[in-house]
């Protein structure tokens, strides 16, 4: 998959592929040519990245090739055991949850599951969970809380699924219950916004001691499209909306809503998933090792204060 702004790369990439293949097939050393092409490609990428508009960043966050929950799990977790089901209604494939280790430390890992193609996305509903998905997430978090295991969540969905059945089964209620449950937990919680941080569906697994976000990810009260259609009565005006909404990583850091912006490989996480995963793992472990100094009560208090201080207003004294 490729966006308009990625098109100029195509020619260079094709050329690089051809030369590499040619060199291999004919057993010729063309390292110099390949290196120079790579350099050119990187230059072009740097140029493109420097000129990215805000909406193009949103598009990067939604890139079909962008590493998803499973891609990250495979790269950062050891001994992952997936746990299924909400023990009430259904196993929602929009949420992947389980137990595993990161650098030898046992943790719970859970998050929105997106796919890389239509088939996968139909199976996991583009990561947009129904109530049973959020209940599964809560169940696994409660399990972790009971056994003192830190929780690491991966946020990457346009939102909670806005469907009729989701409403019938109490989407709003379930999200609210998750927020309350997470606030009370006595283990370190680290949330990573890896792609799209969509509204209540994101926050439902995002009440954390630390919230980390990738450079090209976003975290918003609703998608720019939804915002444009509500405020401007025209969803196609989303690109103009993005800057007003201040939903990009750097905006969120400035407002103190996230704790760290993680740099992405040149051109976006999808261009080098291994490097992106390594960045993520390093950041998660660094924060985790800091948080482990806190007692269970302190962890809960820390999380409470983190959200208690949010909100901007003037007090007029009247």
């Amino acid at each position: 998959m490729r966006y308009d702004f990625e098109r100029p790369l195509k020619e260079l990439e094709d050329q690089l592929e051809r030369i590499t293949l040619y060199a291999r097939n004919n057993d010729i050393n063309m390292e110099a040519e390949i290196a120079s092409l790579r350099e050119k490609l990187a230059d072009r990428l740097r140029e493109i990245c420097a000129g990215l508009t805000s909406y193009q960043r949103i598009q990067l966050a939604r890139h079909l090739d962008r590493p998803n929950m499973m891609d990250y799990l495979e790269r950062i977790a050891e001994d992952f055991v997936e746990l299924h089901g909400d023990r009430a209604f259904r196993d929602d494939h929009a949420i992947t949850a389980g137990l595993g280790k990161i650098d030898g430390l046992p943790v719970a890992l859970l998050g929105h599951q997106k796919g890389h193609d239509t088939k996968e996305n139909l199976e996991c509903n583009f990561g947009m969970a129904h109530p049973e998905g959020f209940r599964k997430a809560r169940r696994v978090m409660e399990l972790a809380d009971r056994f003192g295991l830190p929780i690491i969540t991966f946020i990457d969905a346009a939102g909670a699924y806005p469907g009729d059945q989701a409403e019938e089964r109490g989407q709003a209620l379930v999200i609210a219950e998750n927020l309350q449950a997470m606030a009370a937990m006595k283990v370190p919680i680290i949330a990573c916004v890896t792609g799209e941080g969509g509204s209540g569906g994101a926050l439902a697994i995002g009440v954390a001691n630390r919230v980390l976000i990738f450079e090209n990810a976003y975290y918003a009260v609703c998608t720019p499209e939804a915002c444009a259609s509500i405020i401007l009565k025209d969803g196609s005006k989303a690109p103009e909306m993005v800057d007003n909404m201040r939903i990009l990583a750097r905006d969120l850091l400035e407002m103190g809503l996230v704790d760290e912006v993680m740099p992405e490989p040149l051109g976006g996480a999808h261009r080098d998933p291994d490097a992106a995963a390594a960045t993520l793992k390093e950041a998660v472990l660094r924060h985790l090792r800091e948080l482990l100094a806190l007692s269970p009560e302190e962890l809960r208090e820390d999380r409470h204060r983190r959200f208690r201080r949010m909100g901007v207003f003037q007090e007029t004294g009247r």
Partner: peptide, 30 residues
């Protein structure tokens, strides 16, 4: 292992973190 026995690794990491704590206090929300 994950639910019970590997928690020894967590305990060790906690002890390690406690040693560094004074330096980290300013980044904690307390």
């Amino acid at each position: 292992d994950l639910l019970w026995y590997a928690r020894a690794a967590l305990a060790a990491a906690r002890a390690e973190a406690a040693k560094l704590r004074p330096r980290n206090d300013d980044v904690i929300h307390l």
